[in-house]
Write a protein that binds this DNA or RNA. Sequence first.
DNA 1: AGGAAGATCTACT
DNA 2: GTAGATCTTCCTA
Length: 191
Amino acid sequence: MNKKFYERSTIEVAKDLLGKYLIRKIGRVKLIGKIVETEAYLINDPASRAYKGKKNYNKEMWGKPGTIFIYNVHNNWMFNIVTNKENIPEAVLIRAVQPIKGIDVMMEYRKVKDIKNLTNGPGKLTKSFLIDKRFNGKLIYKCKELKIKDGEKVKEEEIVRSKRIGITKDFPEGKNLLRFYIKNNPFVSRK
DNA sequence: AGGAAGATCTACT
DNA sequence: GTAGATCTTCCTA
């Protein structure tokens, strides 16, 4: 996907990323996963890493659309893509993918054998795909080792919208449905 | 130095 | 499905 794709409303991008392929190249090895779950983080969002203003650790959120933003929580790397316009701190968190290719390699990195438990969470998928802070600040549409490509079309009626997971402070009721996932997909983190 | 964090694992009702 | 322990990174003081 190109810069234009990310330079749109964050909610639109979060929905449109469902069904796309996440591709990771490690030497000759190629890993592919289909994105099945995302969350939108908006401006003035109590749950956003950008909420307390621009700091050294979150400054990427003010960057160009398509910038990769990585941060750590409880020893897990969270993989986000910056959206909307530059200087508007919004992003989409990739929460889960469905393993498509290189599954045995992912299992090695993750030390699990159950495919359903391989990439069904934000920390799990970064471990499976060997994504860490090295990628922070890079542009996803210019990155050779990590990219997002057009995948399977997901119809509007196949998209479920819900509250975000694990949030302690959130938008008030009515504005807090910012998680999106593919209906009946067994690889989402939670129902 | 102390503590919070957008999670995960395990063990259970 | 929920509850509690655990964990590293990177913050704030």
